[in-house]
Simulated scan of single mutants.
Amino acid sequence: MTRPIRLLLADDQALVRGALAALLDLEPDLEVVAQVGRGDEVVDAARAHAADVALLDVEMPGLDGIQAAAALSASLPACRSLIVTTFGRPGYLRRAMEAGASGFVVKDTPSSQLADAVRRVAAGLRVVDPALAAESLASGVSPLTPRETEVLTVAAGGGSITDIARTLYLSEGTVRNHLSSAIGKTGARNRSEAAAIAAEKGWL
């Protein structure tokens, strides 16, 4: 008999992890071997438990799911990653694939489809939620430069121009220029609206 596909679940909500584990363990060819609540625990747990596929939530402490997928891809390429998230944002999908994730599905995917996605990822295929893939193509690549993204991410947390400049070791004039450019590119009226639009699209 072929050995089951060994799964690692990474989600900061214990209830969600438990529910996913219960559903996936019902499949005879899948076995949940480890669960973690932080993104920075993913690589060590995957290595310790010889996981074949890591199911990663996007929003976790330590590292987010996309950063964890990148870390897995770099440190343990034999373990494939499947992003399973509530946040079906097109920008997240693009960033996840660029980070080395093998798949991206939303949490309300039926359990039979999720199990099938796990099997396909384990077999070396790519799996993407079709509605999200279409939306990602329609919305295109983030128009923000890496520096604009950085400035807008810090701006999203509140704080003055001076605070942002101090945090990023930039001059206040440079911060104003980057914010002005980001506001223009997102079609927003101010920086908080620009940050909200960029976050909604998954660009931050």
Rank of each mutant, 00 (worst) to 15 (best):
I5A: 09
R6Y: 03
L7I: 11
L8F: 02
A14R: 13
L20N: 04
D25Y: 09
E31S: 13
V33A: 04
Q35S: 12
G37A: 11
G39F: 04
V43Q: 10
A45M: 01
A46Y: 00
H49N: 13
V53N: 02
L55V: 05
L56P: 10
M60S: 06
P61S: 03
L63R: 10
D64G: 02
G65M: 02
A71P: 04
S73C: 12
L76H: 15
A78K: 15
S81L: 05
S81H: 05
L82R: 01
L82G: 02
T85E: 07
T85Q: 09
R89E: 14
P90K: 04
Y92K: 02
Y92C: 09
L93R: 05
M97N: 00
A99H: 01
V106Y: 09
V106I: 15
Q113D: 15
Q113P: 09
V118I: 01
R120F: 01
G124R: 11
L125S: 15
L132M: 07
L132K: 00
A133G: 13
E135I: 08
E135K: 14
A138Y: 08
G140M: 02
V141N: 12
S142L: 05
P143G: 00
L144G: 09
T145S: 13
T149I: 10
V151L: 00
L152V: 10
T153V: 11
T153E: 10
G158L: 09
S160D: 06
I161V: 12
T162G: 15
T167C: 14
T167Q: 14
S171Q: 12
N177R: 14
I183R: 09
K185D: 00
K185H: 01
T186N: 07
R189Q: 14
S192L: 15
A194M: 09
A195V: 05
A195E: 03
A195M: 04
L204Q: 10
